[in-house]
């Protein structure tokens, strides 16, 4: 790539040790290890949206939290604009300003005792962005208007707003430090659909206006399709497929991606029966050997059960897949996903 990506993540992993009761520890039982994220690598260029999708427990939120510095990675490297920020000591004030986060539940992420004005002003003050109090106030008003609220709303408390308006406040706070990269962890999952549309539109408008880069975490493939340039599909702590949004929906490669696209209820599926896919997500504490997806995969063979597939460029350009069957070309041609029933 000619230009340096804004965010570069290499082989990032975090393993959590699960506590063992004292009695069992005395008997020599080793603590179990939960590999929440087990080696993911990706890069996001400026102004691009990369989405991470997967079912609950796959580790997608943990990826965002690792990048935000909320967990210390077990191994791997995170770099912003080429600066290594993996270790906390490398996260200088200048770096931290450039990266903010929007959480799923705006109720929980806004301090109920603070006025909205103070919530939004906090990053401005912390990073010394405005010269004085008057300038801070002016910026807060500007941010409120930017997210579709009025300047007077700053005097209110978070509980006086609806869920959608609260998420607008979260977005205003995330924008306050003039960041380049926003980590969005399920920003619309707690909202009703008509409000979700308002927030998604707002986020896209802001991206166009300010040239923001988004890492977008979601379980909702339809939302992801709407928001993303590139999509990474995650399963049990690893990426199984990374592709451009259009390519992923038009020709899903990995069997898990195909399963997700086939099973998600969609407005276009009125009155049609579909094949239910058997099996459940295995426990990440005790993941299956080889390819973690093999117990649910209709194409699994001996190699899949023993050898873990690595993420490799597939024959068609720009798509990376971690699947032996795809590599050996023994999968049937990709079904044209939901894109066929437009």
């Amino acid at each position: 790539m000619a230009e340096m990506p804004l965010l570069q993540v290499e082989n990032l992993a975090v393993h959590f040790c699960l506590p063992v009761p004292v009695a069992e520890r005395a008997m020599g039982r080793k603590p179990k290890v939960l590999k929440a994220v087990d080696g993911v690598s990706f890069a996001i260029g400026k102004g691009v949206t990369l989405s991470v999708v997967g079912e609950s427990g796959c580790g997608k939120s943990t990826v965002a939290r690792l990048i935000a510095g909320l967990y210390r990675p077990t191994r791997g490297r995170v770099a912003i604009d080429g600066h290594d920020v993996t270790a906390a000591k490398d996260r200088t004030r200048a770096i931290r300003r450039r990266l903010t986060m929007i959480f799923q539940d705006p109720q929980a992420s806004l301090n109920p005792r603070w006025r909205v004005r103070d919530i939004i002003a906090e990053p401005i003050k912390a990073f010394g962005i405005a010269g004085d109090a008057r300038e801070t106030g002016r910026q807060v008003d500007g941010l409120l208007e930017q997210v579709g609220l009025a300047g007077a709303d700053g005097e209110k408390f978070p509980h006086e707003f609806s869920g959608g308006q609260r998420q607008r406040i979260s977005i205003a706070r995330a924008l306050a430090s003039k960041p380049d990269l926003i980590l969005c962890d399920e920003p619309t999952s707690a909202l009703d659909v008509s409000v979700q549309a308002q927030i998604l539109n707002l986020m896209r408008d802001l991206q166009d206006e300010l040239g923001l880069t988004y890492l977008f975490i979601s379980h909702d493939l339809a939302v992801v399709n709407h928001m993303s340039d590139r999509i990474a599909v995650m399963y049990l702590g690893r990426f199984v497929e990374v592709a451009d949004a259009a390519a992923l929906f038009a020709a899903p490669q990995h069997p898990y991606t195909r399963l997700l696209l086939e099973t998600i209820p969609d407005l276009g599926m009125t009155g049609r029966d579909r094949e239910a896919v058997a099996g459940e997500v295995p426990s990440p504490i005790d993941p299956p050997s080889g390819c973690a997806f093999h117990p649910r995969c209709p194409y699994a063979d001996k190699r899949c059960r023993t050898e873990r597939p690595e993420l490799r460029e597939a024959h068609s350009g720009g798509v990376a897949v971690a699947c032996h069957a795809v590599e050996e070309e023994r999968l049937p041609p990709a079904p044209a996903g939901g894109a066929a029933d437009g």
């Binding site: 609806s162 659909v193 008509s194 409000v195 979700q196 308002q198 539109n201 339809a222 969609d266 029933d341």
Partner: peptide, 18 residues
């Protein structure tokens, strides 16, 4: 206002207010 897997639109039609 519901995004679908089938089609990609630039902006979702939205209902104002709540």
């Amino acid at each position: 206002s519901i995004p679908t897997i089938g089609e990609r639109v630039g902006r979702l039609p939205q209902i104002r207010g709540a």
